[in-house]
Nucleic acid binder design. Structure first.
Length: 698
DNA sequence: ACTTACTCAGAGGCCGTCTC
DNA sequence: GAGACGGCCTCTGAGTAAGT
């Protein structure tokens, strides 16, 4: 049930944020008895002296509105305002509206919520530019509104609110694209309203989650910090749904600022906090600085600290690079809950190809040290997988047998797996696979990977740090194509260009696009998972022509002179994803003979090739030490090593000769068909990169 | 034959500076 | 003053070489 509700909640979150000046009606979560709409005050409204009522609101409630309505502000007067109807069906608040605006000093960027109470009466809530509700004194006559940015509530002295979110509230700073981009919120407003009703005996503050809060750290309102937090405190505890997180409290005394830093991102990730969620932080223990956190979500879902909601006591944290975390699979998996301990993993190329890294925290906590084998259960099948751990490094992997699991369950890059430990004694995991579907970056990836240019270029999958901060330039590309004295690059995209600072650290061979890059990502709408191709079209002035391939089909612009590639440069930003396509081709391979396939990695070229132990155990009898590889009419004798004790097998002596002479390349996928079990003869089919397809199949 | 250590690229965190 | 931005450092993990 809880799972279903959560899923429902995610669905709401994904609703598109409305545009500038959006007019909203009551949300589905709002009781039907209390319809409302909101308006953002733009210059046009100020100049015309009238305010349009949203048509959708009129359709539902317009018949109740006669020629006159009454506007009431909390604790204030009731203002009669005449309505005007224009020919196009619009209805305006007209005579009396200007007076109302002047009286309450309503200005550009203010947000007004009109809650319809029936009988032509609207209760009006006024938010200033910082999205803080202006709390007008009850003896309104001689008072103007409180200064912008002041957010202390008079009703509750211990309450400090900061209600400001890039997601739906106007920022205190002007932005280039207008201040109300995505005032979105029909749903945010509901969350905000719900949160605004929050009451507690403890001091508390409310925060609307901004992108920077989600991505980096949370700013604690300085007023609250000064008043309630002892200066020597450096650690706080956040309680949420029966779990606790230790988070570092960082403060700059001289600036009277405070942030929740180390540990905050874990809290965000593990509680599934999103931009525009409204959180209430209740200080339930002043001595140890413990906050009870309640989250008011966008669709009215409330998750209160230490609530009855079922929340996993295990570790629901995601493991694996966030850049590869597909929003959809990720979100689907986010709803997973269990009484058993579990961990979640986003499939990275190395996981799909090789071995799965187990989160060290999970391993330490739940897996007995002497265990060497784990069993994976998926559907009605079981797989035995070797459990490798390196205690001193705190790392652990699923190795031998894992590849078979991947192959046989059809696991792919960016799928999300949940591993639920249902039997601690025998280490049995029940595995749940959340497919990344078509919304993963794969399609963008596939499109981008086919491109080639006469100019030097590199390709990047957008990671969180790239989107929000800076872009890392492949060191090899930088060394090879960019002159050392260059400090500025130009990014050309469509008809626009951006000047971006080029920062390099020669001693480490690292290079980044820094200042100006955030503007580029913001203004081109670049998002996590999008793929960018950077063509260096001018080496002297470092001009990159950029092509963007969106991860969800939202936009796709190919403005360059790209053509289909035959020799594909590696992607940057995630470890060597290019073999995935060849792997996928090889995955479709069918044969009457038993077979396995591998993607050739650098270490395969120079050293040895592992054979899946399960394959070895099932199909290769006896203790034979030599095998024959057949390809394109030629054959190679290769030494076979198999170690029962470690369940490892690989091809060694003779293998490198095969690699060399069969012209295997890194990223190629090979299918090994066992065409003669007695003499151990493998027929090798090679699937190469783009355009080469299968080079030869005997 | 197998394990462990080392190296390096890159992601992300910390904290100072800048800007509004 | 508040918060965004930027520089640099540390940590992580993949790949590989060396050690036992």
């Amino acid at each position: 049930m809880a799972r279903r509700r959560r899923h429902h909640r995610r669905g709401h979150r994904r609703r598109r944020v409305e545009d500038e000046g959006a007019e909203q009606e009551a949300t589905p979560a709002t009781p039907p008895s209390c319809p409302h709409f909101f308006k953002i005050i733009l210059s046009q409204t100020l100049e015309s002296g009238k305010l349009g009522i949203p048509k959708r609101f009129l359709r539902r409630h317009g018949k109740d509105l006669l020629g006159l309505v009454f506007l009431k502000v909390e604790g204030g007067l009731t203002w009669p305002v005449k309505l005007e109807k224009s020919e196009d069906g619009m209805v305006w608040l007209w005579k009396g509206w200007r007076k109302f605006m002047e009286h309450y000093s309503i200005g550009f960027g203010h947000l007004l919520v009109f809650r319809y109470e029936g009988d032509s009466v609207f209760r009006v809530i006024i938010f200033d530019k910082s999205a803080s509700e202006i709390d007008y004194p009850s003896s309104i006559g001689s008072y103007g509104p409180r200064p912008e940015g002041e957010f202390l509530s008079r009703k509750e002295e211990d309450v400090v609110e900061i209600e400001d979110s890039e997601g739906f509230a106007p920022r205190s700073r002007p932005r280039s694209k207008g201040l109300s981009r995505g005032f979105g919120g029909r749903s945010s407003l509901t969350a905000l309203e719900l949160a605004s009703k929050f009451k507690s005996d403890h001091p508390f503050f409310r925060v609307v989650m901004r992108p920077s809060y989600i991505q980096k750290y949370l700013c604690v309102p300085c007023e609250f910090f000064r008043k309630h937090v002892q200066k020597n405190k450096q650690l706080v505890t956040l309680r949420y749904s029966d779990r606790s997180w230790q988070v570092k409290l960082r403060s700059y005394g001289h600036r009277r600022m405070a942030f929740l830093s180390t540990g905050w991102s874990s809290f965000v990730r593990e509680t599934g906090l999103h931009v525009s969620d409204v959180c209430v932080f209740e200080l339930i223990d002043r001595n140890d600085i413990m906050f009870r956190v309640s989250n008011f979500n966008n669709d009215g879902w409330i998750e209160i600290g230490q609530s009855q909601c079922q929340e996993s006591s295990s570790e629901p944290s995601f493991h694996g690079s966030p850049c590869l975390s597909p929003v959809t699979a990720h979100e689907k998996a986010s709803g997973f809950e269990s009484d058993h301990p579990f961990f979640k993993v986003v499939m990275r190329p190395s996981y799909v190809r090789k071995q799965l890294s187990i989160p060290s925290g999970f391993f330490r906590k739940h897996v007995q040290k002497n265990k060497q084998i784990a069993t994976l259960r998926y559907s009605d099948r079981l797989w035995q997988v070797k459990l490798r751990s390196f205690e001193h490094r705190g790392t652990a992997f699923l190795s031998n047998g894992w590849c078979s699991f991947v192959r046989e369950t059809g696991l792919r890059l960016r799928d999300v797996c949940v591993f639920e430990l249902i039997d601690r004694d025998d280490i049995v995991f029940s595995v749940y696979i959340f497919k990344s579907d078509g919304l993963s970056p794969v399609s963008a990836f596939e499109k981008a990977r086919r491109l080639e240019s006469d100019h030097p270029f590199f390709k990047v999958v957008m990671r969180p740090s790239y989107v929000r901060k800076r872009l890392s330039i492949p060191s090899e590309f930088f060394r090879k194509h960019v002159k050392k004295n260059k400090q500025v690059a130009t990014l050309s995209y469509l008809d626009r260009s951006w000047q971006v600072k080029l920062k390099s650290y020669d001693h480490r061979g690292m290079a980044f696009l820094t200042s100006g890059w955030p503007s580029f990502t913001r203004e081109t709408g670049l998002r996590l998972g999008d793929v960018c191709v950077f063509e260096l079209i001018d080496r002297d002035d470092i001009v990159f022509r950029v092509s963007i391939f969106s991860s969800d089909g939202r936009i796709e612009i190919e403005q360059s002179q790209f053509r289909e590639s035959s020799s594909e440069p590696a992607f940057h930003g995630s470890p060597c994803p290019s073999p995935v396509a060849t792997y996928e081709k090889a995955s479709k391979f069918e044969s009457e003979y038993p077979f396995f396939h591998v993607v050739i990695l650098p270490n395969h070229i120079y050293t040895k090739l592992n054979i899946p132990w399960k394959f070895m155990k099932t199909y290769i009898r006896g203790d034979r030490r030599m095998v024959t590889l057949v390809n394109s009419g030629r054959s190679w004798e290769v030494k076979l090593h198999g170690y029962k004790r470690f369940q490892i097998a690989f091809l060694a002596a003779g293998w490198s000769a095969f690699v060399r002479e069969a012209r295997l390349c890194i990223g190629d996928a090979c299918v090994f068909e066992l065409i003669d079990r007695d003499n151990i003869v493998f027929r090798i089919s090679i699937f190469s990169g783009v355009n080469r397809e299968v080079i030869c199949i005997d």
